[in-house]
Simulated assay, not measured.
Amino acid sequence: MIYGREGMMALLLGVFFDLLIGDPHCFYHPIRLVGNLISVTEKGLRAVFPKTEQGEKTAGVFLSVIVCSVTAGAVAAVLYLAGKIHPYLHLAVMALFCYWMLAAKSLKDESMKVYRELKKEDLKAARRAVSMIVGRDTDQLTAEGVTKAAVETVAENASDGVMAPLLYLAVGGPVLGAFYKAVNTMDSMVGYKNEKYLYFGRFAAKVDDVFNYIPARLSALFMVAAAGLTGLSAKNAWKIFKRDRYNHASPNSAQTEAAMAGALGVQLAGDAWYFGTLYKKKTIGDALRPVECEDIRRANRLMYASAGLLLIVVMLLYCSFNILTLL
């Protein structure tokens, strides 16, 4: 880790505020600015580059370079200006950026909305709630399908919404964290293999794969370790992780989904509808028991425990590094 005491304090404050407040809906979230930047840049690049396979691929490369550079550069500039005004303001702004880049409470809150509708046996409302956090078609999902979708979302976003940002913030502070969030947001917006984004979004998807390669695997390993702490099966989580972690078109998505499925003892993934088209997908895990709505609560508990273990390891590494520098 390259960040010192101020960086660690900012990270801990960011984690604290994310756990306490989550993403408040009373103000415009800065990550939406990244989304707006992506949309505006995409529109401009599509107008400039030819609508051919190579033209769209080239435009996609420019999109990634522009969005990542502007996002990280803007955060660096704000931090520089804050530091010029006062050291405490610099710390406060760092902490605020760390808070904005973490999404543990938001992930839990949105998935628990699905849980509450399922508990009320309001399938229509549950489908509507889960449609807010997944990309698949939800209007024909059964209660089990809704539950699976919510659990899979918690599993996947435990990595790219919580643990990966935590890792990048620990290594490079808010600037690297912002760079990662730009990469991840681009993938969520243009990284589709449909007619519109097959070529334009290819580079963004590949960059996201690279940046999530190590975090996804570390997240899964921490999830396996945390399974035993949350009353779940660490042994089965390890078994399914080793067996099914590549049962997905993405090299990273199934890493945490496999650990989650094994820990819960359920089967996830399988065929799904996207934009009216059925996509054949491999299953992840063994159906040792039927999926139930309580699995959403269990998934969130495992997500929090995994992130907590990671934070403890980060703090121990930070303390060890500082002790070594004093010797």
Rank of each mutant, 00 (worst) to 15 (best):
M1Y: 01
I2Q: 12
R5L: 15
M9A: 15
A10S: 15
L12S: 11
F17T: 00
F17K: 02
D18P: 10
D18E: 01
G22H: 13
Y28N: 00
L33G: 15
V34H: 02
N36R: 11
N36Y: 08
K43T: 10
G44F: 06
K51G: 08
T52Q: 04
E53T: 14
E56S: 12
E56I: 03
K57D: 13
K57W: 13
T58A: 14
F62G: 06
C68T: 09
V70D: 03
Y80M: 09
L81E: 10
P87K: 02
Y88G: 01
L89F: 08
L89C: 06
H90W: 12
L91E: 09
A92Q: 04
V93R: 10
M94P: 05
Y99A: 03
S106A: 13
K108I: 07
V114C: 02
Y115G: 03
Y115N: 00
E121Y: 00
D122N: 15
D122I: 00
L123Q: 07
L123F: 05
K124M: 10
A126M: 06
V130M: 08
M132W: 10
V134T: 05
V134A: 04
Q140V: 14
T147D: 01
E152H: 02
A155K: 02
A158W: 00
V162E: 06
A170N: 04
G172I: 10
P174G: 07
G177M: 03
G177F: 07
S188M: 13
Y192S: 10
Y199Q: 12
F200T: 00
F200D: 02
G201I: 05
D208N: 08
P215D: 01
A216P: 02
R217N: 04
A225D: 03
A225Q: 05
A226Q: 05
S233Y: 01
A234Y: 04
R243E: 09
R245S: 15
R245I: 00
Y246P: 00
S253Y: 06
S253N: 12
S253M: 08
A254L: 10
A254S: 07
A254N: 07
E257K: 12
E257T: 14
G262H: 07
A263C: 02
L264I: 06
D271P: 08
W273D: 13
Y274T: 05
F275A: 11
Y279V: 14
K280M: 09
C293N: 07
D295N: 06
R298G: 04
A299T: 10
N300V: 15
N300A: 04
N300S: 01
M303S: 13
Y304H: 12
Y304M: 14
L310I: 12
L310M: 15
Y318V: 00
